[in-house]
């Protein structure tokens, strides 16, 4: 009887961890999509993507602050819904523009240069954004506004935070919507065409530069949403908050098969769940899961779970 109870406990705890992992993994997926789309079109690992994620969190912090919902010292007041909408719109737009700007200024001039040159530039942009973040936002931890009050929602034998539910729903809608967009629309077909062969895409009348800009805009907007969602769940902002997230999202993209949007989703979820489950036993090992996963994938199937060996992208 005692044993049964214990194993029931254990199962519930495992389920609980899986649920937490799904929420975490959903954000990995949101951010991973940006890596995967850019890689699909340009074969470039956009290191600056993790910093766009960080910017997304800050950009969704400021609207509430500007409108006076962040008094110093005092208890933070609840932010009304319209401000939340405003913050969302602002973060998404500002990050999309940032992403397009990065492509226009840093990557486009190197479109025909060696891949190594582009890669080094990407690292440079990332360092630049982190330092600009330190200067503008200061390195002091900022506490995120009270957009949503955390409550616990019972779900069968377990209970999940309402923020976790929001994260999962929003991420699923966005990644699913993006997948449909890429697979079903004319613009999506143009993106897939560019990822295979830009020269021929141009012969079809596709404006390749505009399509690449759009790719960056979409990926950055998704990262912005990821940043905002994480900040709701863990309301602490720092200019270096993108580092670990970027790394894990990148691993998620590789794990699922870089270039594939469903792959990014799958990789994100797998990684999130694996981390949470490992975290049940030992929290310090949780962060190592990503590295182990990366090594295993690169050894066993470098093209990732859903990746094709060929040049199938996006």
């Amino acid at each position: 009887m005692q044993l049964l109870l214990e194993s029931g406990d254990f199962l519930a705890r495992l389920l609980q961890q899986c649920a937490n992992g799904v929420a975490k993994g959903s954000v990995y997926a949101l951010v991973a999509v940006g890596y995967t789309m850019v890689y699909g079109v340009l074969q470039l690992i956009n290191f600056a993507h993790s910093d766009v994620y960080m910017l997304g969190a800050y950009f969704s912090y400021y609207p509430a602050r500007w409108l006076g919902y962040m008094p110093d010292g005092a208890e933070k007041p609840k932010v009304p819904l319209y401000v939340l909408g405003l913050a969302f719109a602002f973060a998404v737009t500002a990050c999309a523009c940032t992403g397009m700007l990065i492509e226009r200024l840093a990557y486009r001039p190197l479109r025909n240069a060696s891949r190594l040159a582009a890669l080094i530039t990407a690292i440079g942009v990332s360092i630049f954004l982190q330092n600009a973040g330190q200067m503008v936002f200061t390195s002091e931890v900022k506490s995120f506004p009270r957009y949503v009050d955390q409550t616990s929602v019972p779900l069968g034998p377990i209970a999940v935070a309402n923020t976790s539910l929001i994260i999962v729903v929003v991420a699923a809608l966005m990644v699913g919507g993006l997948h449909l967009f890429v697979q079903r629309t004319r613009t999506g077909a143009a993106m897939r065409a560019c990822s295979h062969d830009m020269r021929t895409a141009r012969l079809m009348g596709v404006n390749v530069n505009a399509t690449i800009s759009l790719t960056f805009a979409i990926g950055s907007a998704m990262a912005a949403v990821g940043g905002m969602l994480i900040a709701m769940d863990q309301p602490r902002l720092t200019p270096t908050m993108g580092l670990l997230m970027g790394l894990k999202a990148f691993v998620a993209a590789v794990l699922g098969g870089i270039g594939s949007i469903p792959g990014a989703a799958l990789g994100g979820l797998l990684l999130g769940v694996a981390e949470s489950v490992v975290g049940t036993w030992n929290t310090t090992y949780a962060d190592a899961v990503a590295f182990v996963a990366l090594i295993v994938v690169l050894l066993v199937k470098p093209s990732g779970i859903l990746g094709k060996a060929g040049r199938e992208k996006v």
């Binding site: 295979h196 020269r199 021929t200 060929g310």
Partner: peptide, 11 residues
């Protein structure tokens, strides 16, 4: 219509 046909194999 380019040399080598330029078919998008993934489409």
């Amino acid at each position: 219509a380019p040399e080598g046909r330029g078919i998008f194999p993934n489409l």
